[in-house]
Design a protein around this nucleic acid. Structure first.
Ligand SMILES: [Mn+2]
Ligand SMILES: [Mn+2]
Ligand SMILES: [Zn+2]
Ligand SMILES: [Zn+2]
Lengths: 144, 144
DNA sequence: CTGATATTTAGAATAATTCTAATTAGTCCT
DNA sequence: AGGACTAATTAGAATTATTCTAAATATCAG
């Protein structure tokens, strides 16, 4: 699950300002971010690397990892983990969880029904204060 | 989240039968399972290896991984992932999720309140059928 | 018991990620 | 602009959890 802050997200690299949430937007960070905005399919670091390389052939994989770290740290993107698979990255800042179709591997963003708190359903230990919550779901599509 | 099937769990290695849910209980598998039953702190493979070594000094780490795989495959234990940390293993077969205290690292099992379906709170895509669901939570304890 | 099959083992291999150290780019001051 | 200071990028090496390989051992079925 994920914080929401920015409603309107920039769409092209050009529109992304020089600084966002205190993060210096270098050419590389801008390009990584822009690739994530363009195609919201929850790519992993290597897929992002390949996409960024098309517009910026000299970028290194280490830089892609550095950029992703910086973007995550500054709350512009989320890191999504399914079991021990390579981490994936998500620009959707609205609170949501992830459903993976076991047939195709495609990941779907899943939002909460109005005014629902997952933690209300749980017997959390006395005094426990939730600061991060991650819910991942796998399954199939009925009739397919 | 996790299936429940076995209510009474065996407590010592000796009590564990020769076969469980169709899984041949070799000396090594029995010892790994018994270590998990004895101390339910969600250890990782390496911690399990160290504990098993005390009673079985010749066991190999590869075998611990093999045993854990077999136990997971046969539904006797669950594999628990927090982000990209080493996998941990859990003998609690009742439906539950995991809360990690960010101060101590201790993991707490968290059960659901009576008759609650997490998926009722979600706007799952049309036709999506859940087959696996994992919820991990991190946070602190108030006043500590 | 005998042969077939499954498991264990040590060590090598894999793969995602992180680290290192050198280079380059950006910022700030004068 | 020029120079100094800092931050970011880069290539490649290192790390580490996990998986694989191939040989040895144990278990099972007949
Ligand atoms: Mn999982
Ligand atoms: Mn997480
Ligand atoms: Zn998402
Ligand atoms: Zn547990």
């Amino acid at each position: 699950m994920v914080r929401n802050d920015a409603e309107k997200l920039p769409v092209s690299a050009k529109e992304i300002p020089q600084e966002l949430r205190g993060l210096r937007m270098t050419k590389q960070r801008r390009e990584v971010y822009s690739v994530l905005l363009r195609n919201r399919d929850h790519p992993n670091a290597n897929e992002i690397f390949q996409r960024v390389q098309k517009g910026m052939p000299t970028i290194s994989l280490a830089t892609v990892y550095n950029c992703l770290d910086a973007l995550v740290e500054h709350g512009l993107i989320n890191q999504v983990n399914f079991d021990r698979e390579p981490s994936r990255f998500c620009v959707n800042l609205a609170p949501h969880v992830h459903f993976q179709d076991k047939k195709t591997g495609v990941i779907h963003d899943v939002s909460f029904k109005d005014g629902c708190q997952i933690t209300d359903l749980l017997d959390l230990p006395r005094g426990a204060e939730v600061s991060e919550l991650e819910l991942t779901i796998r399954g199939f599509f009925k009739g397919s």
